[in-house]
Design a binder for these strands. Sequence first.
DNA 1: GTATAATATGTAACCGGTTACATGTCAAGA
DNA 2: TCTTGACATGTAACCGGTTACATATTATAC
Lengths: 327, 327
Amino acid sequence: MTTMKDVAKHAGVSKATVSRVLNKKGYVSKEAEASVLKSIKELNYQPNSVARSLYHKTSGMIALVLPDISNPFFPELARAVEDVALAYGYTVVFCNTDEEIEKEKRYFEALQQKYVDGIILSTSSQAPDEYHKLDLPLVALDRFLGENIPTVVSENKRGGELATQHLLDNGCKNLAHLRGPEGVGPAEDRLEGFRKVVSKEKCSYTVRTAGFDMERAKQETYKLFQDKPDIDGIFAGSDITAAGALHALSTLGKKVPEEVKVIGFDGIPLGQMFVPGITTMEQSIYDMGALAARLLIKQIEKKPIENYIHEFPVHLVVRGTTEEVMT
Amino acid sequence: MTTMKDVAKHAGVSKATVSRVLNKKGYVSKEAEASVLKSIKELNYQPNSVARSLYHKTSGMIALVLPDISNPFFPELARAVEDVALAYGYTVVFCNTDEEIEKEKRYFEALQQKYVDGIILSTSSQAPDEYHKLDLPLVALDRFLGENIPTVVSENKRGGELATQHLLDNGCKNLAHLRGPEGVGPAEDRLEGFRKVVSKEKCSYTVRTAGFDMERAKQETYKLFQDKPDIDGIFAGSDITAAGALHALSTLGKKVPEEVKVIGFDGIPLGQMFVPGITTMEQSIYDMGALAARLLIKQIEKKPIENYIHEFPVHLVVRGTTEEVMT
DNA sequence: GTATAATATGTAACCGGTTACATGTCAAGA
DNA sequence: TCTTGACATGTAACCGGTTACATATTATAC
């Protein structure tokens, strides 16, 4: 590896001058600059970013902390973050916490020691205070961590309302909501939306906790129909949950959408791969990830942030599980 | 941030002694050690890994270079890599190249400047020589890059054979293979397996390129049945491709598995979420990722590697798209 | 009792950049 | 002609660790 010293010697100048050329800072004569640039080329010099980090106390790295990249909701988010990061010259480190506090803490320690410039959090295991203690630029993505942390979320409550309304509009009389994990913001908000609509419309309903897990959703659906065989509309807390429900319904011999209608949430690609396609409340997953990354980089670069809460609209995407549509 | 200097002062020793305590290297008296440890606690000192990196020319980071994390094959792989990395104290940086040489090159530059300790490559855009020039520990994952680069792959050819044979065993007479992208190793190997069986069995067959893309697979399937309406068995190059085919078949009104049987490849979770479940050649995705990470770390830590080529067996998982099974 | 080895610790250089500061040149302005 | 400031460049300290080397003390051996 050629270092700045080598370049300096080769160009017949001091390290300082080389540095000035590289950073376009301070005064450098045309001749010196030309000479340095030539030497850089000839020696194929690449500045060492670790040395730079040490001095500047920044690393050009941002971390993406999420529960589990193999949950299909996250890859697209991660992809968006990485695309934006790349465009701005940042590198993305990713951390799967499985929502375990211990793992999260270990990551935070390691990340701080590496001078990561900021963190995007899609988990919420710890108390908000902990996050502030980090004294690092943060962005909350798909979670809410506190007033003064920039936040990017979907209109989950409204989505819950719209999804529920969609079932009712399609003639469902007995609704079930397979809700996401307790304590997880978006899941709570979707439930709230569901509650709001069913109580206003005074229709019969039930709520079961299915996490965001396909297998569990399947089991809960079996139980659900054991208890309440007349359910004709299911609002699943996620598309994965919907897939689980559809599985169970298929086994139970219930026809979708004729006998039971199902709507999911998220708008992950899985939904349109399914046959029939899963009706869902689509989130702008990629855009959310991209915005989160941009908000983080803004903070890192000390640029002002106008809004702290960014709520993305959700869109009803009607597919085969609620209406018989042409494919 | 407290530094070693602070700790040294507080403990009444020199930086060198603090370093010795931290690294358990060289001679340190019991008293000095106790004093240093106490100071470390009291000052809540955390060593700065950037400074350490600068001296050691290593970073404790490994990079995972893949085409696109939002391709459902990769999240599980990434997860496995990250799990192992975490266990060994490494951090994972991830890089989506979209199989573009330019992107890949930019990443490599950035990674070298950051002293990444090694790279796991699930892409193959560049010529093998380029990879050797890096002079960094490498592991090829799901791709073959050269004899002397440790490689972790599935038995793709054998998988192709087994999948094809499974269709024949189930009575298919007119086969189609929706092959993966040209030039991509696993896709070529699966095709080779397909060819081997169909030519031996002398059955009618056709091959279409569908990439690993659902929409394209759908379109190719439409075209396929336009040309050859009597196709009764489809070997899709990936589960995503299979999903696309199933979509098209549903639209075409072809009954699966009665009229047409479909088998995919990969064993991604999508397959079992589907109704009917997608029969597939299952790869040990997680195990492959985990092994790749271990092989990389072995190289980084200069431990001997016994085998350079690791071929994981594939397993036929029979689901609803080839046989009518109980769910 | 002296040579020798093991133990203990500090000093300073180094990793590869960045930059405050000192110094020097040269041209414009008084 | 002398002052002043823009321009140019080098020296050295610094970021926060690590370690070769020097030095000092104590224990062991002969």
